[in-house]
């Protein structure tokens, strides 16, 4: 791997680092808010992937000026505007769910919630069989 592979593809390396960081946080953290943050970082890495792929070296903003000019591809940028909206909606909904979970369970730690669910389940089964 040459220096060119590292520096020339710098944006993609950053995308991969962010992507893996985000995914790792989602998987490893038990705190539901942190999971949402991880999910956010994961999605942001995709935004960067799209935005940097549309960039053309030396290109300007794609505005019609009458002269022939080199300009960046605007399509990925527009696509990602939509994806950002989706990301905001997901985060908002996720955090709203966390608030409801906090009210219902009194905790936002995944393992504590799972324990409470398991207890509820086994209680339902034992009372069911006893009757």
């Amino acid at each position: 791997m040459s220096l060119d592979d590292v520096l020339g593809l710098f944006n993609y390396w950053m995308v991969i680092v962010l992507m893996m960081t985000g995914l790792y946080i989602v998987v490893s953290r038990g705190n539901l808010v942190k999971k949402i943050v991880g999910l956010n970082i994961f999605q942001t890495s995709v935004f960067l992937l799209y935005i940097s792929m549309g960039k053309v070296s030396g290109g300007t903003a794609p505005i019609l000026t009458g002269k022939p000019e080199v300009y960046s591809n605007p399509l990925p940028h527009v696509l990602i505007l939509t994806a950002i909206v989706v990301g905001v909606a997901t985060t908002a909904l996720g955090l709203a769910l966390v608030v409801r979970i906090k009210n219902a369970y009194g905790s936002i730690e995944e393992d504590e919630i799972q324990t409470m669910d398991l207890v509820a389940e086994s209680e339902a089964e034992t009372t069911g069989h006893r009757r």
Binding site: M19, L23, V26, L32, K35, L39, F42, Q43, V46, L49, A83, V86, T90, L93, G94, L97, V98, R100, I101, A104, Y105, I113, Q114, D117
Partner: peptide, 20 residues
């Protein structure tokens, strides 16, 4: 609530993979 949260996390990861 916790089922919806799990679904949200997994579903978002799936959709993000798709968009990548």
């Amino acid at each position: 609530l916790s089922a919806a949260f799990t679904y949200l996390v997994m579903g978002t990861i799936g959709a993000t993979f798709f968009v990548i």
